[in-house]
Amino acid sequence: MLDALTLDQMRTFVTVAESGSFRAGAARLSRVQSAVSHAIANLESELGVALFDRSGHRPVLTPEGQALLANARDILLRVDAMRARARGLGEGIELELSLIVDTLFPIETIGLALNEMRTIYPTVSIRLAVSPLGGPLDGLVERRFTLGIMVGEDFRDPAIARQALATVQLVAVVAAHHPLGLARDGALENAELADHLQIVQSDPSQRTVGRDFGVLSPQTCRVSSQDTKHAMIRAGLGWGRLPLWQVQRDLDEGRLVRMPTAALGRNSQVGAECYLTHRIDEPLGPAARVFGEALARLCAAG
């Protein structure tokens, strides 16, 4: 009967599938291999299907096992979220609020929300980091931070909950004295953009190895921080995308100009959605909840 299924059986199934063998799965679960094999056999008997093909050197998921693996993961995620919520209901105020923010998000808004949180919970310490691209997701997955601010749709994980906050505008800019800046009357094509150095943000995580986002030129200068990228573009070294909140004053005062091309968005501008994120299996304390509510309110106010 399906009612006889246990969470332990499903967790064992998922662990073996992710580990690649019964031996490796047993090691991760701190059990003997025979107990893991027995649990999988019982699960297969309850479900009435074979989850693994054991004919080779290593067990391989059957088509049925591959299909049911997604269901097992979903059930375990929901159970972990329920346990986290239950723990959170009985816990007091956090000693520390740890937060990792995408470099594209306006950091002053974070400060305003943290200030609101501190007026209510003045004893809560704050640990704040700023990181680009896959950095915020790594910080949450590795449990180094409680909350994250992520920008864009490129980094997702089923264990990470997301709440949309606002849209950040990204503008392709170049120094006014750069050759591309002086060509502001024309509409440049991709081939012409490729003739000039593009300033590109490096990813501190390993999530974008072999991938590039928005890189159009074979000539690149890769930098480790957004402030460095901003400074190199202002110096006339090359062109690149930066958040509008960071370059608005430069545009207003003529130090930077929008790239004269329609290949990088209308008026050289595109929007990226920003999300407040956290692990679904970690309860949010009262300070984290107050911070999230304050941040959402500030973003909604514009």
Rank of each mutant, 00 (worst) to 15 (best):
R222G: 03
R222Q: 14
V223E: 08
S224Q: 14
S224I: 11
S224M: 14
S224H: 13
S224V: 12
D227V: 10
D227T: 09
D227L: 10
T228W: 14
T228Y: 13
T228D: 13
K229V: 00
K229N: 00
K229F: 02
H230T: 04
H230Y: 15
A231Y: 12
M232P: 00
M232V: 06
M232H: 14
M232A: 09
I233Q: 06
I233F: 05
R234G: 01
R234F: 12
R234Q: 15
A235E: 08
A235H: 09
A235W: 03
G236F: 07
G236E: 04
L237K: 11
G238M: 06
G238D: 05
G238Q: 06
G238P: 11
W239R: 04
W239T: 03
G240P: 05
R241P: 08
R241N: 13
R241A: 15
L242V: 04
L242G: 02
L242R: 05
L242C: 01
L244Q: 12
L244P: 01
W245R: 04
W245T: 00
W245N: 02
Q246R: 15
Q246D: 07
Q246V: 00
Q246A: 10
Q248E: 14
Q248S: 08
Q248W: 13
Q248Y: 07
R249L: 04
R249E: 14
D250A: 14
D250K: 05
D250S: 09
L251P: 02
D252S: 11
D252F: 08
D252P: 00
D252I: 10
E253L: 12
E253I: 05
G254L: 01
G254K: 04
G254T: 06
R255Y: 03
L256W: 02
R258S: 10
R258Y: 00
R258I: 02
M259V: 12
M259K: 03
P260N: 05
T261M: 10
T261Y: 00
A262S: 15
A262Q: 12
A262E: 13
A263S: 15
L264F: 14
L264C: 09
L264T: 11
L264H: 03
G265Q: 06
G265E: 05
R266D: 11
R266Y: 11
N267L: 13
N267W: 03
N267P: 00
N267F: 05
S268V: 10
S268R: 07
Q269E: 13
Q269H: 03
Q269L: 05
Q269V: 01
Q269W: 00
V270E: 09
V270K: 09
V270W: 08
V270N: 06
G271Y: 00
G271N: 12
A272N: 08
A272T: 05
E273L: 11
C274I: 15
C274W: 00
C274G: 12
C274D: 08
Y275C: 03
Y275R: 03
Y275P: 01
L276D: 01
L276I: 03
L276C: 04
T277N: 06
T277V: 13
H278N: 14
H278C: 09
R279M: 08
I280Q: 14
I280E: 08
I280L: 15
D281L: 10
D281A: 10
D281G: 04
D281R: 02
D281M: 07
E282T: 14
E282L: 09
P283L: 06
P283T: 12
L284Q: 10
G285I: 02
G285C: 04
G285F: 04
G285D: 04
